[in-house]
Design a protein around this nucleic acid. Structure first.
Lengths: 140, 140
DNA sequence: CCATACTTGACTATCTTGATCATGTTTGTA
DNA sequence: TACAAACATGATCAAGATAGTCAAGTATGG
């Protein structure tokens, strides 16, 4: 699992939309790129993917923008990461020896471990923590 | 944590050396590239890194080759992966908002989870399992 | 002295990622 | 209706990493 800038931006955008999901008006791209440091046309690209995935709705025309189309308590960081689609390691040739196969299974195990972490984190959790000013760190 | 072909090959090579650590003669590159499907000059490059890291010793000249220079029960997949040096995500700009910071910490948490898995797996474990023909899988 | 095999450094091709641009379409508002 | 705001779409580009290659040199056993 690779966390690219694209995935990071996508999550930031989703979080912004979630924060403002009670607003009557949709959120314009401009408002997001201003707050965070995201290149405008790049975010357009990312929103296209999010819309295809069904996580956001777009409103065209003047006063248009984007709205989140799912409950922030029902979507996880893993959902977003997979929607954006990071490359799942190009290392997918058929294993040709037992050693090869064993190694592969360990790489899979490691990838699964990080996916399991991300699958536990809902957008709502992050928003809650943000509102409490609780930026706890998890290093090793 | 990205598992590149380079890291995979490095681990395969180390495993081969470990399997033959009781031999009197060192193992030539040719013997490894034949068994697995590794491009010769590429493995040369990888061995250079492993030697610099201190995990293998080289023997030059005719009948030369490589020998593992650590106990297979003392080296983990994480050790090798870090010696080869996969890029640790170029996404390392200073976080500029609380949301940004929170997200970053979750990416770190996910990366730590996969590192923790790899840190538990010693070369010896894999060799044991290979000898028992036990290619167990860990998916999600 | 010669074949084998490691040493070193430079080099190339391809792919992914991050980012940009131009053009078109929709819609609210004056 | 005209205009400006804002999304839609497709093409394109540059930088960097990855995978892999090549060539010239050095050491050693027989």
């Amino acid at each position: 699992m690779i966390i690219s800038a694209r995935v990071h931006y996508a999550c930031l955008a989703m979080l912004e939309l979630a924060l403002r999901s009670n607003d009557a008006a949709p959120v314009a791209i401009r408002e997001i790129t201003d707050r965070h440091n995201i290149p405008g046309p790049f975010l357009v690209q990312i929103f296209r993917t999010l819309r295809t995935a069904g996580w956001v709705q777009s409103v065209r025309g003047s006063q248009g923008g984007y709205r989140i189309s799912v409950d922030p308590s029902q979507i996880t960081l893993l959902d977003i990461a997979e929607a954006i689609g990071c490359q799942e390691s190009a290392l997918r040739a058929a294993p040709d020896t037992p050693l090869d196969e064993l190694l592969q299974s360990h790489w899979d195990e490691a990838a699964a471990a990080s996916r399991r972490v991300l699958a536990e984190i809902r957008l709502e959790d992050i928003i809650e923590r943000c509102r409490h000013g609780d930026a706890s760190m998890f290093y090793i």
